[in-house]
């Protein structure tokens, strides 16, 4: 059980991080004019952060024993 518990804790931590990333005030930092590779900064930020979050979830989900 302990492995699945630590996995659960990692997921909870990741969820909290996600809530931080997709909320005021972090979100406000990117709510500015300007572009990144032609894409508005806010849009670029959200999609990059989102993708990173999913990658982390994949890493946690697939790592460790296939419980």
């Amino acid at each position: 059980m302990s492995e699945s518990e630590s996995k659960g804790q990692r997921f909870v931590a990741l969820c909290m991080l996600g809530m931080l990333l997709f909320n005021y005030p972090i979100l406000a930092l990117f709510n500015v004019s300007g572009t990144l590779f032609g894409v508005p900064v806010l849009y670029a930020y959200i999609f990059i952060a989102w993708a990173a979050l999913i990658a982390s979830m994949a890493f946690i989900a697939e790592s460790g024993g296939r419980q």
Binding site: G8, F11, F22, L42, W50, M57, I60
Partner: peptide
Amino acid sequence: DGVGFLPIYIGPTLMIALWWV
């Protein structure tokens, strides 16, 4: 309103992080 539709998909992503629990 631009990105206003995204929480409907970001919210589930965050919730799914809790699915394991």
